[in-house]
Amino acid sequence: MSLAARDLTISYGGAPVLRDLTVDIPHGGFTMVIGPNGCGKSTLVKAMGRVLKPGGGQILLHGRDLWSYRGREAARHVALLPQNPVAPDGITVEGLVRRGRYPHHTLLRQWSPADDDAIAFALERTGLGDLGGAQVGRLSGGQRQRAWIAMVLAQQTELLLLDEPTTFLDISHQYELLELCRELHEEGRTVVAVLHDLNQAARFATHLIVMSEGRVVAQGPPSEVVTSRLVHEVFGLECDVVPDPRTLTPMVVPHTRRAAAASLAGRAQNAPRTSTISDSGNSR
């Protein structure tokens, strides 16, 4: 187990957001953390990325307390892409990716031969090979998010933590990014992502962690975890769970309120109506 939380408690001044949480991140897996807003999923990932210091308990990295590592040492094992990173004015894609090499540098050695290979790899891997000299501010949303992924890739860590990487992207770019994450995982990295969309999570993840009110309420392969009962309990959403016609992974099909009220029986007949645009927001 390369990354794990043990009795983790974290609070932002007031009531704890996470309380005595224990969870393991499967080595080499593509883990997605899901749960309703405010359930603590982002907090968990931030704690694992050494952004938040535990008030109690520990994060274990290779069996050792994450905070017993020096900052840059930990950053050579775990990379975190937060929700709202800031691109400095006037920075180029390559300049941004280069900053991901920070943990590998020292005061007098702010460049090493390995840098160029790592940066070239990261740019190529994210399809930005031709855009190294472009200004980050002028990129499209999808390209910009890939530039950030390239930055954490250049960090060359075996663990990659992504906090809601698909937010602000349109649907085709969401899938493009998730495919990229899956490829990165298939190349041998352990990838952990916080995601809002249950169907996307179930389709791409090898392991799901479902959180609610600061606790882990279910975890395991998507096919075992995602059930209509769980979605109802955790998200308060009535739904059917059917096999995704393409991948056979579980797919959540919410009921509409109107349909649920109108029909006490014949749930299946109403199911197709439930994917109207006005209701898709409920699954988030």
Partner: peptide, 14 residues
């Protein structure tokens, strides 16, 4: 590195 935002800076070990 801090210019990249606090969370990213922390993730990079600064």
């Amino acid at each position: 590195v801090t210019e990249l935002g606090d969370e990213l800076a922390a993730g990079l070990g600064a």
